[in-house]
Design a binder for these strands. Sequence first.
DNA 1: TTGTACGCGTTATCAG
DNA 2: CTGATAACGCGTACAA
Lengths: 340, 340
Amino acid sequence: MKPVNLKKLAEELNLSIATVSRALNDRYDIAQATKDRVRELANKLNYEPNPYASSLRRHKSRTIAVVIPEVANHFFSLAINGIEEIARGNNYHVLIYLTHEEYQREASIVRLLAGGRVDGVLLSVASRSHDLNHLDLLRERGIPMVFFDRVHADMDTAKVTTDDYESGYKATRHLLDAGCRTVAHLTLAGSLTISRRRMHGYIDALRDFGLPYDETLVVPAQLSKPEDIQAIEALLTHRPAIDGIFACVESLAMCSYEACRNLGRAIPADVKVIGFSNLEMAALLDPPLTTITQPAYNIGREAARILFQAVNKNRPILPTHSLELKSELIVRASTAASPR
Amino acid sequence: MKPVNLKKLAEELNLSIATVSRALNDRYDIAQATKDRVRELANKLNYEPNPYASSLRRHKSRTIAVVIPEVANHFFSLAINGIEEIARGNNYHVLIYLTHEEYQREASIVRLLAGGRVDGVLLSVASRSHDLNHLDLLRERGIPMVFFDRVHADMDTAKVTTDDYESGYKATRHLLDAGCRTVAHLTLAGSLTISRRRMHGYIDALRDFGLPYDETLVVPAQLSKPEDIQAIEALLTHRPAIDGIFACVESLAMCSYEACRNLGRAIPADVKVIGFSNLEMAALLDPPLTTITQPAYNIGREAARILFQAVNKNRPILPTHSLELKSELIVRASTAASPR
DNA sequence: TTGTACGCGTTATCAG
DNA sequence: CTGATAACGCGTACAA
């Protein structure tokens, strides 16, 4: 109701506002006795500095933004966890924004952020984000940004990614080694670097194995889960030879399970499935899902760490600060080799 | 780099700062022609008002805080989703804070928030939060708060919960009807209302069925997942008669699956399992998990809606604004009745 | 060691 | 209809 501010403290202590301010900021030119008196009253009254006045003065918001496609997704949840951890260590606050994979939403969020609400931005690009013009605003305003996982390749900043090409290659190779000869690839809509690199790994693995690349085996994500399931069912029906599915994201792996179940295809006997996923319970699925698992928590931590290096030292972020972490192939029953 | 502010716009347009401000805020006392001129330049220069200056002046931060135990959890992810949706509709920003179930962390977060950083708080209590003294600060400062899911019963504000007692009763009854006679209950640590109510349902269902309540069958969550699994294994080993497990939260249901697997107990033949969960892929588990599923997304939406009613109209939130939504029992194979 | 006075960018009040 | 001017609460030169 009645805010406790410097003025109030100053009045009660018979000091000037300036002195109280300096005492609380532990400045060298204030007597220890005064500092103690001020601190004591501040604690007693539960004084908290008004963050907005402080931000206005210091040109620092002590806030960062995390912009992601969605939160109901284990990868992003874990990443947020890592980000929050680092932010907290730096005494920073974390604003969260969801784009729901939409370009418009991403653009309008970025426009807001360019107003100076945050000192830095962590961004994972929406799959339906076709260009990066909207991000220029941040650069113009000198707001540092770090991409994580889903990046715009030709953007002049740091990116924290995983070895997507290698993972795509390994995943595909794993299916081929398990006996698959017609491998479908379920990918994100749009042309994110992440999907391109994973797909590239897929294509190269096929080629190295002596198999042709058939682009009709590549299906992009639809707008909703039911549509995805339907699309996969259609694919499996039209192309009965498909004996392997490589899903670029977790949700598509789950949709594959449902589609197979609906069509009565047995996993792994009829179709083997591998998917990118951070789901802890992949091992408890029926059958346990073979996954490419990204170090999501660390991706969040590292992206935040890079951002704070720039924020705290007022230095720009360079593309050379980028980091590529390793994903892990965890083999489970969904890709068990078929008996001949 | 060089910020675009009202002063700059005013200079370029040969208008006063005040006029520009009013034009942008679409005040009635500004000529349409002027408004148009101002708008045009503002758009051209990508002007965004400095949110901190505005907050300072208006005593409104256009920001709310969401304080939750963790984010890598489907329930909270979905709730955030609902909250973000409503916040966005109100042109509000969402700060996120994780307590990791710790009282200290919750307290220090609340202290920060009391400084006026936010116009309102949505809180889901940490399980190791033993009292609510730390929340008094918010009340003193007149910052509205709404609890969701995990509430402090004797706090004088609105709460959005689900029918936990009924759900606990239904879950237990379901196990009993499926043939269980020794039902263990895995609950959260501490004594949250939510766990108490679910446990109450458990106890009453046992009683109504003519079974005694054996408190050694009730096991609280430990500090980590491995510890939880170990605790469940110990329970199952010491009490071989256990033929049913009712898990109060998702993670404990998953731990039960792992424990049963480790011990070679078959689900549902040896032990039936039911758990609170918002996991979409519960149906894809081995075996598919019977769940009590809460309307997480709607809980988030409703909690946010109640909060914004207070925030926008400057009215206090009353306990009478509380809401109780219904959870759903979704029967799957993990509780299939055993053949006699 | 402490106080005075100004400015951060915006909005509100009061004149004109 | 528009312009000066005074806050909002805090941090910091400059004075004392």
